[in-house]
Amino acid sequence: RQGFVPAAYVKKLDSGTGKELVLALYDYQEKSPREVTMKKGDILTLLNSTNKDWWKVEVN
């Protein structure tokens, strides 16, 4: 499932696989259909980080 999360809630990881991955630093509950819920410690695939406030991710 793809959607947006606050950029301040995730940290980029060095995956070494060519995929950009991020680590969820905090729990986040989606507040609109365009967002996704994540739990602290989740590893997500980063799809787009051009917006400084909201990053598009895919929940694996």
Rank of each mutant, 00 (worst) to 15 (best):
K12M: 10
W54S: 02
V36T: 05
G41I: 01
S15W: 14
S32P: 04
Q29S: 11
Q29W: 11
L23M: 15
P6N: 03
Y26C: 14
V10R: 00
L21K: 10
V57T: 00
V5Q: 01
T50S: 14
A7I: 03
A7R: 11
W55R: 00
K40G: 05
W54R: 03
E58Y: 05
E35W: 03
N60D: 12
L46H: 01
I43P: 01
G18T: 11
F4C: 11
E58R: 08
N60Y: 12
T37C: 07
L25N: 03
W55I: 04
D27C: 05
E30S: 15
K31W: 04
V57C: 02
V36P: 02
F4R: 03
T45P: 15
D42G: 03
F4P: 00
K31Q: 14
A8K: 15
K11H: 09
K11F: 08
N60K: 11
K56W: 15
R1N: 06
V10T: 04
A24Q: 00
L21Y: 14
K31R: 15
V59C: 10
G41D: 06
S49Y: 08
V57L: 03
R34N: 14
L21F: 11
T50F: 10
N51R: 09
N51W: 07
S49N: 10
P33Q: 09
G16L: 13
N51L: 09
V10K: 00
E30M: 12
I43L: 08
D14N: 13
K40N: 04
A7L: 02
V5L: 03
K56E: 14
D27T: 05
T45H: 12
G41W: 05
V10N: 00
L13P: 01
W54D: 01
V5N: 01
S32W: 07
S32K: 07
K12S: 07
A24L: 02
Q29M: 12
L25H: 03
S15G: 13
V59T: 15
S32G: 11
V22C: 13
P33E: 12
S15H: 11
W54I: 03
L47A: 03
I43M: 06
K12A: 08
T50G: 09
K40I: 06
L25K: 06
T37N: 07
L47Q: 03
G3I: 04
K56C: 15
K39R: 12
E35L: 05
A8S: 14
R1E: 04
D27E: 05
S49T: 10
K19Q: 12
D42F: 04
S15R: 10
T45K: 13
L13S: 04
L21T: 09
W55M: 03
D53I: 15
T17H: 14
T17C: 15
M38I: 15
M38F: 08
D42W: 10
F4G: 01
E58V: 07
Y9F: 13
N48Q: 09
E30N: 07
N48D: 15
N48W: 06
P33M: 09
N51T: 06
R34A: 13
V22Y: 10
V59D: 06
T45E: 10
K31L: 09
N48R: 06
K39G: 05
G41H: 05
K56S: 06
A24F: 02
L47W: 03
L46K: 01
K11N: 06
W55K: 01
Q29A: 12
L25G: 02
L13Q: 05
G18K: 11
Q2F: 07
Y28F: 06
S15P: 10
E20W: 10
G18W: 08
P33S: 11
P6M: 03
G41M: 03
N60G: 15
K39F: 08
Q29Y: 15
K11Y: 08
A8G: 11
K52I: 11
N60P: 15
A8D: 11
M38N: 00
G18V: 10
V59I: 13
L25T: 05
L47M: 07
T50L: 10
R34E: 13
K11A: 10
V5M: 01
L47V: 11
V22Q: 00
K19D: 09
N60M: 15
E35K: 04
G41F: 05
G3S: 02
N48E: 15
G18M: 11
F4M: 09
E35P: 04
V57N: 00
P33T: 09
K56P: 02
L44Y: 10
S49G: 10
L13A: 04
S49L: 04
K12R: 13
K39Y: 11
S32D: 11
F4W: 15
W55C: 02
Q2D: 05
Y9E: 03
D27R: 03
D42A: 07
T45F: 12
T50M: 11
S49E: 13
L47E: 02
G41T: 02
G3D: 00
R1G: 05
A8I: 10
K40D: 02
L47H: 04
S49I: 07
G41Y: 05
Y9I: 08
P33C: 12
Q2E: 09
E30V: 06
Y9W: 07
L13C: 13
K56T: 07
W55A: 03
K56Y: 15
V10D: 02
Y28S: 01
L23F: 07
K19V: 15
K31C: 10
V57R: 00
L44I: 06
G18S: 10
V5K: 00
L25V: 07
K31P: 05
K31E: 08
V22S: 02
K39D: 04
Y9C: 13
I43F: 05
A24H: 00
D27H: 05
E35F: 06
T17S: 12
S32T: 13
V36D: 00
T50P: 04
G18C: 14
R34Y: 14
R34G: 14
L25A: 04
V59A: 12
N60Q: 13
A24C: 12
V57K: 00
V36Q: 03
N60A: 13
L23C: 09
R34W: 15
T37G: 09
P6R: 04
E20A: 12
G18R: 10
K40Y: 05
T50W: 08
L23V: 14
Q2C: 11
N48C: 10
N48P: 03
T45D: 06
G3M: 06
K52E: 10
V10G: 00
L25M: 09
L25Q: 04
T50D: 15
G16K: 14
D27Y: 04
L44V: 05
N60F: 13
E30I: 06
D42S: 06
V5R: 00
V36H: 04
I43W: 04
W54Q: 02
